[in-house]
Design a protein around this nucleic acid. Structure first.
Lengths: 342, 342
DNA sequence: ACATAGCTGATTGACGTACCTCAAAATTCC
DNA sequence: GGAATTTTGAGGTACGTCAATCAGCTATGT
């Protein structure tokens, strides 16, 4: 009545426990005819390996590393926090999470860091980094060493990663564009678009989606050329101010990158919050404050907790040779207003 | 270096394994002085019980029942589906989920059904039901029998449940109201509000939040008295048609209950989708279609998968005497547009 | 001093799996 | 047919915990 165990398999297949074990763990020394017999028994009885008992027996410890850019943006801070939190929760599940910070734009440091993870025999790596040949090659090397790899937040579609964990940035941009258009319904004017960098793939994709929607559905709105804020509050503050000086019929701002604080500061100082529709990304504490006091209208968010948990689930499944439920691992594009703040 | 085990505790406290075990499982027969010694050792070494090993040893099986209304609304169907899906995933985790359907408004059937669960010694119950004395009393009885109980989707605040799993319906109504007001920016007119029943707590709360926002921020919009659709497509279709005949300056519809299909049908037939802002609840397949083809502008959603997983996590924690991470169990109010459909 | 009850220790066998060894059986090769 | 090789069986130990038994210990009250 209960779940079948290895013993039941052995009996059903008419072989010994040792043989079942060899088949299950793909150890050599079993005739192919016998392998088939055992596999038939497994299928017939609907046996599923008790992962917990197995991990207990082999004292399995999953060691996963989260490789993140070393920046101090609120998003990165909360992402690191989420890794720490998830790690605490997962200690009971024999998984150990660690974060590794890598200065952006330092290829050799990146290569060394990843190589160290290979040498250290970690079981899986979740990596958030800009797309470079070095990263691509190192991902290939990690995969070759049997390490599970997922890309995080920003994908590396040309690399040999097992999966991408993050939102569809084009869809996110489209979502922002739709909300911008609907909130401004009918008004005509220009939209400031602020990105971290015009070289970051995710940022480009958001812009792409945003523009597509505007031109499809809201031709009365014109998105101005992207301003680069480099994830820096001061810098963002400066470029927003300059742009607002230069254009006098701005009706909305789309902050596709980090640096929300600088953006809101500029708007607050100019007393523009009631006249402009402001849409930002990532529900950091600043963004939350901005929503609460009406400086920001909408925040498009990817839940960092979900990101981390999804990444670990996928890495783990990869380590165990299991397949994942694709639909459960899709990261939702959250729309956050003041009213539905968590 | 590895995690401390009971053996380490025994050694540290200078007692035997058996005593540690008695303390851990709060079994009698240990002097209070010794209990303290053991607990100190546990704290000192930072011991955390290996839940999986423990469950393995005691052959623990968590048996949870989801008590749901027997209706055939898309939401209920997908909820049942989610229970089934989660149950399949949890079989490996020694949990067994089952759904029990109960015809609404049949008190004695409800009482019998819940009593049967008590007699059957289930470990936990997640119940979605309207607030009645019978349900309240049965929850008390279940709790008294040591069964963990959470309310699902619709809360029973006066009952002795351990937790409520669902969205904050007032906030959901506020969210809908805000989007309605912003999408209609500046326009003046009336809003149809459709609820399942004016007796269901969740529906009343949504209406409450919706009205509050309209009167606070959008005085140009007037919400008409609630129409009751009783979660039925035909009925909803009829009341919407009648209301649209009776009022000629309707600018938006808020469907707070089920029956989205009837609502969209009425709108489609009258060719009103471009003139009205339509906001519905629950991302069923019909709602999804409505979003895709532009009949619906926004869907406010509570993710059924999250509901079920959160409920089982909480029930399980309750069974193990663990505390939950409150913030992780809060069900998000999802805003879904065509652009951010999952 | 003695019975009694309350504590505690030592030990053992599960639970379902991994991993190892040694020997026996079966198969292949010459 | 015999040797060499491959395949299989039997059995054990371990993982961290639970649960149970039985024996021995310590206080307490009489």
């Amino acid at each position: 009545m209960g779940k079948p165990t290895v013993h039941d398999i052995a009996e059903e297949a008419g072989v010994s426990l040792a043989t079942v074990d060899r088949v299950l763990n793909e150890r050599p020394g079993v005739r192919s005819r016998t392998v088939v017999r055992v596999q038939d028994a497994i299928k017939k009885l609907g046996y599923v390996r008790d992962v917990h008992a197995a991990n207990l027996a082999r004292r399995r410890q999953y060691r996963f590393a989260f490789v993140l850019p070393s920046g101090q943006s609120q998003f990165l801070i909360s992402l690191r926090e989420a890794v720490k939190e998830a790690g605490a929760g997962l200690r009971l599940d024999r998984a150990e999470l660690r974060t590794v910070d890598v200065t952006v734009n330092d290829s050799s440091l990146m290569a060394n860091t990843l190589q160290r993870l290979v040498d250290d025999h970690v079981d899986g790596v979740a990596i958030m980094a800009t797309e470079t040949p070095v990263v691509r090659d190192m991902i290939a090397r990690m995969k070759a060493s049997g390490i599970a790899v997922v890309t995080l937040v920003s994908d590396q579609p040309n690399a040999d990663r097992d999966h991408f964990v993050g939102i569809d940035n084009i869809a996110a941009g489209r979502t922002a564009g739709t909300l911008m258009g609907r909130f401004l319904s009918g008004r005509t004017g220009q939209i400031l678009v602020i990105v971290s960098s015009t070289h970051a793939r995710g940022q480009v994709e958001r812009r792409l989606g945003f523009d597509a929607v505007l031109s499809e559905a809201f031709p009365n709105l014109t998105a101005l050329p992207s301003l680069e804020g480099y994830d820096d509050g001061e810098r963002t503050y400066a470029v927003v101010n300059r742009a607002l000086d230069a254009h006098d019929d701005v009706v909305g701002i789309y902050g596709a990158g980090a640096g929300t604080r600088g953006m809101t500061r500029a708007i607050a100082e100019r007393g523009l919050s009631d006249h402009l529709v402001i849409i930002g990304h990532d529900l950091t504490t600043h963004a939350e404050d901005g929503l609460r006091n009406g400086l920001i209208d909408v925040v498009i968010n990817q839940n960092v907790g979900h990101l981390v948990r999804s990444a670990t689930r996928i890495l783990r499944a990869q380590c165990d040779g299991r397949t994942i439920i694709e639909s459960q691992e899709r990261i939702r594009i959250e729309i956050v207003l003041r009213e539905n703040l968590p």
